[in-house]
Design a protein around this nucleic acid. Structure first.
Length: 270
DNA sequence: TTCATACGACCTCAGGTATT
DNA sequence: AATACCTGAGGTCGTATGAA
């Protein structure tokens, strides 16, 4: 990514981190008495540093999920010369057979037991395999539905990409909602690509995702489906560059140097 | 057949943002 | 300022499964 993009990301990171730090030190500083009052037993057994650290961690994780990844993804895409929009909503038209079929697919896959493997379980289809059937379904009854994606990218060459960014350990409901939107959109728009996107691999970049969290395997072939993007693959795709992920980590390092100090000094007081 | 274990749907908690 | 609603992490508990 170019210098301008990098500094925009830096700036955004600093802004969010400073907001968290200010909130936790100035506007709503840590209150030991409150811990004592609200958790009388825990307070008496575990050092206050633990509760203090935990308070900051909660606050940070929430902001990371809902205020950082989505925006950074947009900035990176814009930096690559594309048009990018967060929280992109769109009304699409599908025929009723297709809509019914999509609901059907999801319902069946949810019901199916993950553990009855090998013998009688048929291999889960990838998104593009499902689409082959869905696109063939034809009837005169149409219906308009709403789809929502966390990030929409229109590349210079006109290709359109839709990303459903989720927490790295989504529950079944969140996974189903994402798949529904992906199938609906791609059934209707033959040239669009829609992705189930996780900002990092919680098992470790080089490890199998399944080892840490199995729930989304009910609905997605997480290891093989081209419409599933995790960690490095996701960021490099958004930036259209094999270095995007490592460059991004470098930026986090750089901003981290500043705000780690600040957190130690201003929040933890060490 | 019984029992221990693993799994996953659901729940709870804390925190953030938008709305009134 | 109060509240409503959303999100993420992680705990709980009933149930399915496989071993004894």
């Amino acid at each position: 990514m170019n210098i301008e993009t990098k500094s925009k990301i830096e700036e955004h990171l600093r802004e969010v981190m400073n907001r968290i730090i200010e909130k936790r030190t100035i506007y709503e500083p840590f209150n030991e008495d409150e811990i004592k009052r609200k958790n009388p037993f825990g307070y008496r057994l575990v050092p206050i540093e633990v509760w203090k650290g935990s308070k900051f961690e909660r606050s940070f994780v929430t902001s990371l999920g809902q205020g950082i990844f989505e925006q950074i993804a947009r900035i990176i895409a814009e930096g690559s010369g594309a048009i990018a929009i967060n929280q992109y909503q769109k009304i699409i038209r599908l025929n009723s057979w297709q809509l019914e079929r999509i609901d059907n697919i999801l319902e069946n896959q949810r019901k199916k037991n993950l553990k009855t493997k090998s013998k009688n379980s048929i291999k889960l289809k990838t998104i593009s395999e499902e689409l082959e059937f869905l696109r063939k379904l034809d009837t005169d009854r149409y219906q308009d539905v709403n789809v929502l994606f966390d990030l929409y990218i229109k590349r210079k060459d006109g290709t359109e990409e839709y990303y459903s960014l989720k927490t790295v350990k989504p529950n079944l409901d969140q996974t189903e909602a994402a798949k529904k939107d992906i199938l609906r959109l791609m059934t209707s728009e033959k040239n669009a690509q829609a992705y189930f996107a996780l900002p990092y691999n919680p098992a470790g970049e080089d490890k199998s995702y399944k080892s840490i969290h199995s729930i989304p395997y009910k609905l997605f072939d997480m290891d093989c489906d081209n419409n599933v993007l995790i960690g490095e693959n996701l960021w490099n795709k958004i930036g259209m560059d094999d270095n995007t992920y490592s460059e991004l980590l470098d930026i986090f390092d750089k901003v981290g140097e500043e705000c780690k100090d600040k957190i130690r000094k201003n929040y933890l007081g060490i």
